[in-house]
Amino acid sequence: MILFFGTRPGKPETTTLLNSTCPYCQQQGTLTAVTQKNYFHLFWIKLFKISTNNYIECSHCKRLYYENEFTDEMNRELSRIKK
């Protein structure tokens, strides 16, 4: 019997942060938050979530901010949107 198993990323969920300013280029409304979940699969069927990756990208300067680099303004905007 052959088993096909492994990990695979899910579809990214994007949210635009309209009230946040990019700390690098100082542009407002250019930040996009991306959440991507990684799943364990068996025969290409998702069974359970393994991890979640969050990052924010500025569409003006193309700077990427990982979760440990989020500013207080970014965190407030994310928590306001997720409610």
Rank of each mutant, 00 (worst) to 15 (best):
N38Q: 11
I45K: 10
E73D: 10
K82T: 08
K83L: 13
L31H: 07
P12K: 09
E13G: 02
Y65S: 03
F4Y: 13
E57G: 08
D72S: 12
N54H: 13
R76G: 05
Y55E: 00
W44K: 11
L17K: 08
E69Q: 12
C58D: 00
F5C: 08
L64N: 10
A33S: 07
N19W: 09
N75R: 15
L17D: 01
E57V: 15
K83C: 11
F43M: 12
I45M: 09
L42C: 05
P12L: 07
A33W: 15
Y65M: 06
S20P: 06
K37W: 01
I2P: 10
F48C: 04
L18R: 15
E73T: 01
K49G: 02
N53G: 01
L3F: 13
T52L: 03
S59A: 10
P9T: 03
P23I: 07
E77N: 05
E77V: 03
G10I: 01
E67T: 07
F70P: 00
N53F: 04
E77M: 05
T35W: 04
S20E: 10
T35A: 12
Y55R: 07
N38R: 13
R63N: 12
I45G: 01
T30I: 04
L47T: 02
K49N: 05
T71I: 02
A33E: 07
S59W: 03
F43W: 15
Q26P: 03
R80A: 15
T52Q: 10
Q36V: 12
Q36G: 06
T7V: 12
M1K: 13
R63P: 01
N75T: 10
A33C: 09
R76F: 04
R8S: 11
R80C: 09
F4H: 13
F48P: 03
E69C: 05
E13F: 10
M74P: 00
M74Q: 05
Y66D: 05
G29S: 08
I81L: 15
S79A: 14
L78Q: 04
I81K: 12
Y65K: 07
Q26G: 02
K83E: 14
K46R: 11
D72N: 14
S51G: 08
R8I: 08
N54F: 03
I2H: 13
Q28L: 11
